[in-house]
Deep mutational scan, measured.
Amino acid sequence: MKVIFLKDVKGKGKKGEIKNVADGYANNFLFKQGLAIEATPANLKAL
């Protein structure tokens, strides 16, 4: 799943980066902690 990092995550990505991560990691950690959002066309356009 492509995500947009909202904050720096050690070993994974920096704020503003768009990266592919495992679905479970994105859903269970990044999204719940507010560290990233899904890289949907609408979210990409908002950058």
Rank of each mutant, 00 (worst) to 15 (best):
F5S: 02
A26D: 01
V9A: 08
M1G: 02
N27Q: 10
N43I: 05
N27K: 03
V3K: 02
N43S: 10
I18E: 11
F5V: 00
K19Q: 13
I4N: 00
V21I: 12
A46F: 14
D23L: 13
L47S: 05
F29T: 09
N27D: 04
L6T: 12
L35C: 05
F31Q: 03
G24K: 15
L44Q: 13
N28D: 12
Y25G: 08
N27E: 15
K32R: 12
K10V: 14
T40S: 11
F29G: 09
L47T: 12
A22P: 15
Y25D: 10
G34K: 06
G11T: 05
K32Y: 04
K45N: 14
K2N: 14
G16W: 09
A46Y: 15
K12W: 10
A26G: 07
A26T: 03
E17S: 05
K14W: 09
G16K: 02
V3R: 00
V9F: 02
K10L: 12
L44H: 11
L44P: 03
G11I: 00
G16R: 06
P41F: 07
L6H: 03
K14V: 13
K19N: 15
F31M: 06
D23G: 12
K10H: 06
G34R: 08
I18A: 04
A42L: 09
L35E: 06
D8P: 03
I18W: 06
L47D: 01
L6A: 04
K12F: 06
I18P: 01
I18R: 02
K10N: 09
K45D: 06
A22Q: 14
G11N: 15
D23I: 14
K7V: 11
K2R: 06
D23F: 09
N43H: 14
L30M: 05
V21W: 02
P41V: 09
L6D: 03
K7F: 10
F29Y: 10
K10M: 15
V21D: 02
A36V: 08
D23A: 10
D8I: 02
A46T: 11
F31C: 07
F31H: 06
A42F: 12
L6F: 07
V21T: 04
M1D: 03
K15R: 13
A36W: 01
N28C: 09
A22N: 12
F29N: 09
I4K: 04
G16L: 10
L44G: 06
G34I: 00
G13N: 00
D8T: 09
F5H: 01
F29V: 15
L6M: 11
G34L: 07
K14H: 15
A42W: 14
A42Y: 14
V9I: 13
T40K: 09
F29W: 13
F29A: 10
F31L: 13
K19P: 00
T40V: 07
I18D: 04
F31P: 00
K14E: 08
F29S: 09
K10T: 13
I4M: 11
D8F: 07
L6Q: 06
A46I: 14
K19S: 14
F31V: 08
K15G: 08
G24H: 03
K15C: 07
N43E: 08
A22S: 14
E17P: 00
N20W: 15
N43A: 07
K2Y: 10
Y25S: 14
A46N: 07
Y25H: 09
A22E: 12
G24T: 11
K45Q: 08
L44E: 14
K2A: 01
M1N: 15
I4R: 02
I4A: 04
I4P: 00
K45M: 09
V3G: 01
N20Y: 15
L44M: 02
E17G: 03
I18C: 15
I18G: 01
N28G: 13
T40C: 05
L30R: 00
L35S: 06
V21K: 03
N43M: 07
K45C: 10
G16V: 01
K15V: 10
K12I: 15
A36Y: 01
K12C: 10
V9E: 03
E17F: 03
A46Q: 15
K14F: 15
K32N: 06
E17V: 04
T40G: 07
G11M: 04
L47A: 03
D8S: 14
K45T: 14
K19G: 12
V21Y: 11
L47R: 14
V21H: 07
K12Q: 13
P41S: 09
K10Y: 13
L47W: 09
A26V: 02
L35V: 09
A42T: 13
V21P: 00
N20E: 11
I18M: 13
I18Y: 02
